[in-house]
């Protein structure tokens, strides 16, 4: 759950049309085009989650974050049977109450609820939960792990740097690596994760 209180806006006089903003936006809210010899940057404020990615990467400093009327993005977990939520979390190998996004404070159960609500792609999950609208880094794999566990595959947009792919988890580390590199303690870390995932859910 995230409170959105800023939206991106572009000073087109400074824009050079490089499309970086479009490429880094996690929810594809930006389209860069050209009109009458001038670059035109369309920002869909219904999608903008105020993550600052475009503001931080525009090489021309053409993007500014402007305050908007604050509103909340999030998915209410209580609308679903908690057994279903729990099952999806454990399939994605998260404890339902485990934090998945340090910036929004969202927990695994909210990603599960968003999927049960119909989110099918990474951008849809960001829009439904606010996960991925802060640092834009650390929650990347939880998002992709949840989609995969729900059996959802998605096609990557060409016009984007984002959502490159799900990567390895500790449960998938080849046994040869575990044997060859004992200093990394893969097996002990896997056991720790298993204890977390299997812990009971307290109200």
């Amino acid at each position: 759950m995230k409170v959105v209180d800023v939206h991106a806006s572009v000073n087109e006089d400074l824009c050079k049309g490089c499309k970086t903003c479009e490429m880094v936006c996690p929810v594809y809210a930006i389209t860069v085009g050209k009109r009458e010899k001038k670059f035109k940057v369309e920002i869909n404020h219904k999608r903008c989650v105020g993550c600052w990615n475009c503001e931080q990467r525009c090489p021309e400093h053409a993007v500014e974050m402007k305050p908007c009327d604050p509103y909340i993005i999030g998915t209410d977990v209580s609308q679903f049977d908690y057994n279903e939520i729990e099952a999806l979390c454990r399939k994605a190998r998260f404890h339902p109450k485990q934090l998945v996004c340090y910036c929004s404070g969202s927990r695994a159960e909210e990603l599960a609820a968003a999927i049960l609500s119909g989110a099918k792609t990474p951008d849809a999950l960001v829009l439904a939960t606010g996960v991925g609208a802060g640092c834009g880094i650390e929650c990347n794999q939880p998002i992709l792990r949840f989609l995969e566990s729900a059996g959802l595959s998605f096609e990557r947009r060409k016009q984007s740097f984002q959502w490159l792919g799900r990567t390895i988890t500790v449960w998938e580390v080849p046994s040869k690596l575990k044997e060859d590199f004992p200093v990394f303690r893969f097996e002990e870390d896997r056991q720790l994760f298993d204890r977390i995932i299997n812990a009971s859910v307290e109200p």
Binding site: E138, C139, Q141, P142, T169, V173, R185, D189, L192
Partner: peptide, 16 residues
Amino acid sequence: RCETRSTYHMNLGPRG
């Protein structure tokens, strides 16, 4: 990239 950093901080465990 962020995918790799998230692997480091979310997928593999504190030592692995």
